[in-house]
Amino acid sequence: MVFWFVCYLVVVWLISASDESCPELPFVENGIIVIKEVEGQILGTCLCIKGYHLVGEKTLFCNASVEWNAPVPTCRLGHCPDPVLVNGEPSSLGPVNVNDKITFKCNEDYILKGSNWSQCLDNHTWMPPLPVCKSRYCGPPGNPAHGYFEGRDFNSGSTITYHCEDKYHLVGTRDQQCVDGEWSSALPICELIQEAPKPIPQTAFEKALFAFQENKELCKAIENFVQRLKENNLTMEELKYSLENKKAELEAKMLS
């Protein structure tokens, strides 16, 4: 404490002796400011004690406006939180000083996900973020609804094959491989196969269409048309399908 008080008095005395019009610099906790005159200009250099790092401008000078060119810097504790790598090992296990870099390595059967190095920044954070070590082996894959997979080996390099139940078809990748702890593709899905509507019997089809021939009033004809569809248990979708079939038959006859 006596040492820092003496340093503070020396700084104040030097400033006052060199240029009485320059404002006094405040005390820097965990550091000192060394004042000197260079070519008629007052310069202040801030130094931090061991274990602390400087945040801000290291060198200050009194400008023409009789003001210091930048705010007084601070001295912060000079290391980042200890790096932790589960199933791996960083190159340094102890406190890492600001601006220092470390590297990472995973244990056998584990693969590094993320950057293999990181640097301790001024704000005591790691950048890039610390990586993780992930197992090279994949866990059991999921089953899609109405589907299943074949394969019992989930180790790195193994493959599985997906299948769907009857009346369903697979959408996605059928064969997948375990690559560095992850399956090579997203889980596929099993979609219901849409069955085509059954063709409408010709008699029922004709009865529905005759409604337009029997009545010249459009509204009345439409009403009769809908009524006959209901009487014959027909839907508009089935009628559309039958019309398309009829059109295809006529086109085929014209081409033959």
Rank of each mutant, 00 (worst) to 15 (best):
residue 1 M to V: 08
residue 2 V to C: 10
residue 3 F to G: 14
residue 10 V to F: 02
residue 16 S to M: 10
residue 17 A to F: 09
residue 17 A to Q: 10
residue 18 S to R: 07
residue 19 D to L: 05
residue 20 E to G: 07
residue 21 S to D: 06
residue 21 S to P: 00
residue 22 C to D: 04
residue 22 C to P: 02
residue 22 C to V: 08
residue 23 P to T: 01
residue 24 E to A: 11
residue 26 P to W: 03
residue 27 F to H: 07
residue 29 E to Q: 13
residue 29 E to D: 11
residue 30 N to M: 09
residue 33 I to Y: 04
residue 34 V to K: 15
residue 35 I to E: 11
residue 40 G to M: 07
residue 42 I to H: 03
residue 44 G to I: 04
residue 47 L to Q: 15
residue 50 K to I: 11
residue 51 G to M: 04
residue 51 G to R: 02
residue 52 Y to K: 04
residue 53 H to R: 06
residue 53 H to E: 05
residue 58 K to W: 00
residue 60 L to F: 08
residue 62 C to N: 06
residue 63 N to K: 06
residue 63 N to E: 08
residue 63 N to I: 07
residue 67 E to K: 12
residue 71 P to M: 10
residue 75 C to V: 08
residue 75 C to G: 07
residue 76 R to Y: 07
residue 80 C to V: 01
residue 81 P to L: 00
residue 81 P to H: 01
residue 82 D to K: 10
residue 83 P to R: 09
residue 84 V to L: 13
residue 84 V to Y: 07
residue 89 E to C: 14
residue 92 S to M: 06
residue 93 L to A: 08
residue 96 V to R: 02
residue 96 V to F: 04
residue 96 V to S: 01
residue 99 N to S: 11
residue 101 K to G: 02
residue 104 F to D: 00
residue 110 Y to I: 09
residue 112 L to D: 09
residue 116 N to T: 07
residue 119 Q to N: 06
residue 123 N to I: 01
residue 123 N to A: 04
residue 127 M to H: 12
residue 128 P to K: 03
residue 132 V to N: 06
residue 132 V to S: 08
residue 137 Y to V: 10
residue 137 Y to I: 10
residue 137 Y to H: 15
residue 139 G to N: 12
residue 140 P to L: 14
residue 141 P to E: 06
residue 145 A to L: 14
residue 146 H to W: 11
residue 148 Y to G: 00
residue 149 F to L: 06
residue 151 G to P: 01
residue 151 G to Y: 05
residue 152 R to K: 15
residue 152 R to G: 08
residue 152 R to C: 01
residue 153 D to C: 04
residue 154 F to S: 00
residue 160 I to D: 11
residue 160 I to A: 11
residue 160 I to G: 06
residue 164 C to L: 08
residue 165 E to S: 14
residue 166 D to F: 13
residue 168 Y to N: 02
residue 168 Y to T: 01
residue 171 V to I: 12
residue 172 G to L: 03
residue 173 T to A: 11
residue 174 R to G: 01
residue 177 Q to L: 07
residue 177 Q to C: 06
residue 180 D to V: 01
residue 181 G to H: 04
residue 183 W to H: 01
residue 185 S to H: 14
residue 186 A to D: 11
residue 188 P to H: 07
residue 190 C to V: 13
residue 191 E to V: 05
residue 194 Q to I: 14
residue 197 P to T: 03
residue 199 P to S: 06
residue 202 Q to K: 15
residue 202 Q to C: 01
residue 205 F to K: 15
residue 206 E to M: 14
residue 207 K to A: 15
residue 208 A to P: 00
residue 208 A to Q: 08
residue 208 A to V: 15
residue 211 A to I: 11
residue 213 Q to A: 11
residue 214 E to F: 09
residue 216 K to D: 12
residue 218 L to S: 13
residue 220 K to V: 13
residue 220 K to S: 13
residue 221 A to Y: 05
residue 221 A to R: 05
residue 225 F to M: 07
residue 225 F to D: 03
residue 231 E to P: 00
residue 232 N to I: 02
residue 233 N to C: 12
residue 241 Y to W: 10
residue 256 S to M: 08
